[in-house]
Nucleic acid binder design. Sequence first.
DNA 1: CTATTTTTGTATCGAATATTACAAAAATAA
DNA 2: TTATTTTTGTAATATTCGATACAAAAATAG
Lengths: 181, 181
Amino acid sequence: MVLKAQELFWEKGYNATSLSDLSTATGAGAGSLYNTFKGGKKELFKKSLQQRKEDLEGFKIKLANSDTPIELIKSFFISVATASKKSHLKGCIVANTIVEMTFIDEELENEAIEILKETEKLYTTTILAAQKKGNIKSKIPAPTLGKHLITLWCGINTLRRIYPDKEILKQQIELQLQLIN
Amino acid sequence: MVLKAQELFWEKGYNATSLSDLSTATGAGAGSLYNTFKGGKKELFKKSLQQRKEDLEGFKIKLANSDTPIELIKSFFISVATASKKSHLKGCIVANTIVEMTFIDEELENEAIEILKETEKLYTTTILAAQKKGNIKSKIPAPTLGKHLITLWCGINTLRRIYPDKEILKQQIELQLQLIN
DNA sequence: CTATTTTTGTATCGAATATTACAAAAATAA
DNA sequence: TTATTTTTGTAATATTCGATACAAAAATAG
């Protein structure tokens, strides 16, 4: 149920998604939605965000089990270029929420910010380890490179709406990943 | 009147800004607003976007009158870091609109995309000229570098909401501007 | 089985939304 | 001045919003 709601929120954002939309998409009546998610629409949105947090935990585990986790991160970024057109247009629900919710709902904004900061932490740790192992030659401090990947992520997630084009995106992503070498 | 409306739209986005908000902010009654802007709320938003287009024209002229226009572009990016906290949180109304309006209103989305593409064109032209003049040594094709600046712009405009911090932003911007050298 | 609790869908609520009708007021024209 | 047009603010419009009340239905317990 949350996944169906997440898909809608991801596409249309919080404000433009009505409870009627959610009811149709999930197949549950308004009463059921409010019984299941006591906080109503907002709670349902929170759950949709937290879902991404869990996905991040899954990625964390993958990185922990990899010999060259930094390569996993790089290929994750590169794989964005070949996503579907709809994925391009949807962008990232976390980044979208930060943009939409500033000045509107501090709690939702902060939830989204927290997720990106946690992602950044994961990147930074991985980069630092790779530098020590010699898999990254760059002497740029790991925290700087970690933030750079977040900036890249946010940038690409708008660029892919302007240019939902595999070649353009691949070019831009690889250009910026050169810093992590 | 448009500027007051623009300020509100810029902060809260299209959907979260009500006509009542606009009426209060501009000091004009609903009747006046609809008489002045025949398309209602949407037309007022369009005008707010077009205002940015005119600002871009102003920047174009500045570049045309400069001996080293590429330096103007660079210092524009760097100056973003030292903006006010509110400016950081507001981000860019054009980029915000692209994020908010995909799947919601194709016309507004395309208006915003057009502005960023025109900005990109301006960057690309300037970069190409600087390469020919020897002011940029990089052999990366100008169109690629132009798109890179757009990606940087969109990325920074989300990063500055997460970190409305002068030092962090300056560091990230300068890191990415190294590609334009 | 029966009794009790939980879940569901519908109908409805009040509030807020964008828009319009319209009359008073202001500006302009003659 | 007087006549005409334009602009303004208020009130009312229909619609949609998120949320709730509530009774039927389903699930669970004993």
